[in-house]
Design a protein around this nucleic acid. Sequence first.
DNA 1: ATAATTTGTTACAAAACGGTAATTCACTTC
DNA 2: GAAGTGAATTACCGTTTTGTAACAAATTAT
Lengths: 238, 238
Amino acid sequence: MEQNAKILVVDDEERIRRLLKMYLEREDFQIEEAEDGKEALQKALEDDYDLILLDLMMPGMDGEEVCTELREKKSTPVIMLTAKGEEANRVHGLEVGADDYIVKPFSPREVVLRVKALLRRSSTTNFVQTQTKTSDVLVFPHLTIQKDAHRVTADDKEVSLTPKEYELLFFLARSPDKVFAREDLLKEVWNYEFFGDLRTVDTHVKRLREKLNKVSKDAAKMIVTVWGVGYKFEVEQE
Amino acid sequence: MEQNAKILVVDDEERIRRLLKMYLEREDFQIEEAEDGKEALQKALEDDYDLILLDLMMPGMDGEEVCTELREKKSTPVIMLTAKGEEANRVHGLEVGADDYIVKPFSPREVVLRVKALLRRSSTTNFVQTQTKTSDVLVFPHLTIQKDAHRVTADDKEVSLTPKEYELLFFLARSPDKVFAREDLLKEVWNYEFFGDLRTVDTHVKRLREKLNKVSKDAAKMIVTVWGVGYKFEVEQE
DNA sequence: ATAATTTGTTACAAAACGGTAATTCACTTC
DNA sequence: GAAGTGAATTACCGTTTTGTAACAAATTAT
């Protein structure tokens, strides 16, 4: 597995760096930081990283420049972070040699997934395809989630979910039986600058259950309320 | 292990500081205190702590400010303590660079667990053994407790417990055969500002036994009354 | 630009829970 | 075997948590 990969996080905002660090370390990645383009380039050249998360807009040398210069020497995989307004630059970023880009504000979950995806991609190109693509499809007794296709089927019938509903379900289903507090769900599934009401989660759970229920009672039952604690995705066992 | 870590406890209320100190010292942490933001910042900068427990609301410089200023120099892990009403500020705390937050009034047990969790996370001790996670599942002859799932099964049948019942059981089961006085249980399982009747414990024990008993007599027997002393979770042996 | 969909908020009723107190029961001791 | 102390049980009621519906805001599609 690509676990324990070494990742360089580059952003001028300390807050963002910390956030990324926190979430990525939780996945057992090894994180180093750089707070400007110059430092980033220096580190990236000195050391061999498995991946670089690179903010586009930075004072001094911006992400684009870093990427261009880096590419003259190395082919370390790069994910570019772009603020929403800068989205136009996106293609530019890819042109410059970035492998993927993520638009701010991102959700922590998204970043982790994209990082893993890119690591997987960049490692398989060099090796024979031993990777059986972990968890691209989650299959449970009455429910199947196809990650890439954003497709959910309950008892073989398709359920059409909105993005948030899908993400919520996917997140829960990724750690079966584990209870998540509403707070945790807000932190993980929503993006980092969302500070809304906890009831928001309830509402989404309700809608999710509703849709699942129309198609399969059994599938709907998998989303379980744990009173006083939160929600979990439970796989029936007996 | 990260035991013996040095922790700075910051709160303007002496009572809270003492309480935290007491519980954390019991876990062999080394505690220092600060009673306002200014003192906290000074100490935090002068000395290297493994973790800081930081009250949000304090006269003068509040926790948020301390955190912000601290973050300009250091990345010491911070757990923010927020009163219930301030919950709105909660995420703000994270934005400012806190790594976790705990809502007052907290239960001592919770604090200890969160502190340990954060220390585990932030100790870049990227050694494999770190995630051996102490007792994520407790397995006994007729009873199993899955911590993350908040799930209890007695003789393979699920028992649905309320939060308090679950916590009580979990707490007892974590130290098999050890007798706890009612007072101890109240102190540990309930939150710090609860000074209620000792009989409360009896009632919860009763409900717990009742639920367990419906499913497995053997499991129910594990919660043993020690006359004149308290209760213990006893693992049968012969 | 306008309509349609998705998302977030708020308010409220119903349900589940928690703590207390009063009563009954069990063990111990004199 | 009667008195005293601690434990179990029961019933009660206030509080907290949850589900839901209705509405407002934001986003996306047309």
